[in-house]
Design a protein around this nucleic acid. Structure first.
Lengths: 143, 143
DNA sequence: CACGCTTTTAGACAAAGTCTAGTCGTTTAC
DNA sequence: GTAAACGACTAGACTTTGTCTAAAAGCGTG
């Protein structure tokens, strides 16, 4: 059964419930961060989250941003996307899907889950179990 | 038509020819680096290349390692593999294939090209052209 | 209210990678 | 042969992303 997906109109109370449902105690800072992430489907780096959350006044420290994003990823609230060697992106869409990555612009886009599906995995290496599959289609701007 | 693949017994003369064939002027340092990369199919980080090449005596500077690996990647002599947010791996196997990544051990393994093939790409975003497809199957050590 | 536990914080630190400005080497031009 | 020109190399400073540490702040429970 699938979790109700977070949407832009989630209230703080709903965000708190969402965190709790994923076994994360909702604190002020965590809710501040979650509000940004779940505002809409998007891909943000830690740095971007940091500057958005502290736009008006200093609400959350750098350490907490990193702690929280790592915690959220571990608890399945967001998905880490590793496409750029210099930074990790956090995807608020945790459903099964893959990505286009524009190497010129740095833009990251979801691929509709229907449009690309791997129906069978190759035999895994001895003594390992699957943890996830990432498919990244790198594109360049034409013209 | 495919290039002859580099193999462990490549002589320095063959390495030079291989570089030249990819439009890279073979210098002492570049051959030193290439000799390590092409010794056998493997996945090395810049840091690993740096310490291997300078094992006995200081032959190549850090800046040259990075310049050269970037150059080799741009010229198609090696393939960048981005799976670990903290470092880039360089794969001496440039033929079409994908990777297992053991998130526990950090080990990176090739998936046989036969075993996993995406035969059709989803429609690319407006104004872009394909640059490459990376499939990474993340695994954990069982037990 | 006091205890213990979790969370947050500022700032120091670490690691990967880039940049700069100067040097070295090799070719080309005379 | 020597000088100019160009590409490649270097040491070390620098930048950026992310982690660590030690202390402070919150918070729930008895």
């Amino acid at each position: 059964m699938m979790d109700k997906e977070p949407t832009s109109w989630m209230s703080d109370a709903e965000i708190s419930a969402h965190l709790r449902a994923h076994d994360v105690t909702p604190t002020q800072q965590r809710v501040d961060i979650a509000r940004i992430l779940f505002a809409r489907p998007q891909h943000l780096s830690a740095d971007q989250v940091l500057s958005i959350v502290n736009q008006e006044t200093q609400l959350v420290s750098k350490a907490t941003i990193y702690n929280t994003l790592n915690l959220f990823a571990r608890k399945g609230l967001v998905r880490e996307v590793i496409v750029d060697p210099s930074k990790v992106f956090y995807d608020s869409n945790v459903s099964d899907h893959h990505h286009f990555y524009n190497v010129d612009s740095g833009e990251l886009m979801d691929i509709d889950s229907q449009a690309l599906k791997l129906d069978q995995l190759p035999t895994l290496p001895e003594g390992t179990e699957a943890d996830g599959v990432d498919i990244i289609i790198r594109v360049r701007s034409r013209g």
